[in-house]
Lab assay of single mutants.
Amino acid sequence: MATVKFKYKGEEKEVDISKIKKVWRVGKMISFTWDEGGGKTGRGAVSEKDAPKELLQMLEKQ
């Protein structure tokens, strides 16, 4: 499965696309949330040019 790689608060992170729940556009950035388990929700953002095609497809479906 595809993953999204991004930096959050200076830390490199990687999230499996299948865990992503919500995707939206903020200017030229793609923001998203995912389920971290245990009732926690993670947040992240990646530039439109660095976003994997699967993430962009999720954005178009909404």
Rank of each mutant, 00 (worst) to 15 (best):
27 G>R: 10
1 M>Q: 15
59 L>C: 13
24 W>P: 00
49 K>L: 10
39 G>C: 15
60 E>Q: 13
19 K>H: 12
62 Q>G: 09
19 K>N: 13
32 F>Y: 00
10 G>W: 01
13 K>N: 03
25 R>K: 10
55 L>R: 00
33 T>H: 12
20 I>A: 01
22 K>P: 01
58 M>P: 02
57 Q>H: 07
32 F>L: 05
54 E>W: 07
56 L>H: 10
37 G>F: 13
40 K>F: 14
54 E>T: 07
5 K>P: 01
2 A>T: 14
19 K>C: 14
18 S>L: 14
43 R>H: 11
38 G>Y: 04
50 D>S: 11
29 M>K: 06
18 S>C: 13
41 T>A: 08
48 E>L: 06
13 K>S: 02
43 R>G: 09
41 T>W: 15
45 A>F: 10
44 G>D: 01
42 G>W: 15
16 D>W: 07
26 V>A: 11
33 T>G: 04
7 K>Q: 05
30 I>P: 00
4 V>A: 01
20 I>Y: 00
8 Y>H: 08
7 K>D: 04
39 G>R: 08
26 V>N: 11
14 E>P: 00
34 W>H: 05
53 K>P: 12
5 K>V: 04
5 K>Y: 02
33 T>K: 15
17 I>Y: 01
33 T>C: 15
40 K>G: 12
14 E>L: 04
27 G>F: 06
59 L>S: 10
10 G>L: 02
43 R>V: 13
28 K>Q: 09
33 T>M: 07
20 I>H: 00
11 E>T: 07
60 E>H: 08
18 S>H: 09
7 K>V: 07
26 V>M: 10
41 T>H: 13
55 L>V: 04
41 T>S: 09
27 G>C: 15
17 I>V: 15
39 G>L: 15
11 E>D: 04
5 K>D: 01
7 K>N: 08
58 M>D: 03
49 K>M: 11
7 K>C: 15
57 Q>E: 07
62 Q>D: 15
30 I>K: 00
11 E>M: 11
5 K>T: 03
32 F>H: 00
6 F>D: 01
38 G>R: 08
14 E>T: 09
31 S>F: 11
16 D>L: 13
14 E>W: 04
59 L>Q: 05
11 E>S: 04
24 W>S: 03
3 T>P: 02
2 A>Q: 06
38 G>H: 08
50 D>A: 08
51 A>F: 03
27 G>A: 15
22 K>N: 12
21 K>R: 14
19 K>Y: 14
30 I>M: 08
37 G>Y: 11
36 E>P: 05
19 K>I: 11
26 V>I: 11
23 V>W: 06
56 L>C: 14
32 F>D: 00
34 W>K: 00
25 R>T: 08
26 V>S: 12
1 M>V: 09
28 K>Y: 15
43 R>T: 15
36 E>K: 10
24 W>L: 04
37 G>C: 15
24 W>Y: 15
42 G>I: 06
61 K>M: 12
52 P>T: 04
28 K>S: 06
31 S>Y: 06
25 R>I: 12
3 T>C: 04
36 E>L: 07
57 Q>W: 11
32 F>T: 01
2 A>F: 04
31 S>T: 09
34 W>A: 01
51 A>T: 12
34 W>M: 02
24 W>T: 02
27 G>E: 08
51 A>N: 02
6 F>W: 03
12 E>T: 07
47 S>Q: 11
51 A>G: 11
37 G>S: 08
33 T>W: 05
53 K>W: 14
38 G>T: 12
14 E>H: 05
44 G>Q: 03
1 M>E: 15
25 R>M: 14
2 A>W: 02
50 D>H: 12
3 T>S: 05
17 I>Q: 03
34 W>G: 00
48 E>I: 05
28 K>N: 09
2 A>H: 12
12 E>H: 07
52 P>V: 05
20 I>G: 00
40 K>T: 12
34 W>T: 01
52 P>Y: 02
58 M>V: 08
41 T>G: 14
34 W>R: 00
18 S>Q: 09
4 V>L: 03
9 K>I: 02
36 E>Q: 08
27 G>V: 06
28 K>P: 08
47 S>K: 08
9 K>P: 01
39 G>P: 13
4 V>Q: 00
46 V>M: 11
21 K>Q: 15
55 L>I: 04
16 D>T: 07
30 I>G: 00
21 K>D: 09
56 L>I: 14
42 G>V: 07
46 V>W: 01
24 W>H: 03
56 L>W: 12
32 F>W: 01
31 S>P: 04
51 A>Y: 02
2 A>N: 09
14 E>F: 03
16 D>P: 12
39 G>F: 07
32 F>C: 04
29 M>S: 14
15 V>A: 03
27 G>L: 13
51 A>E: 01
47 S>L: 07
28 K>M: 08
55 L>A: 01
48 E>C: 15
24 W>E: 03
6 F>R: 00
38 G>I: 07
46 V>C: 05
4 V>C: 01
32 F>A: 05
45 A>M: 09
23 V>R: 01
42 G>L: 14
45 A>G: 13
23 V>T: 13
15 V>C: 04
8 Y>E: 04
22 K>V: 15
45 A>N: 14
1 M>N: 14
39 G>Q: 12
55 L>T: 01
44 G>N: 03
6 F>C: 04
10 G>D: 04
21 K>M: 15
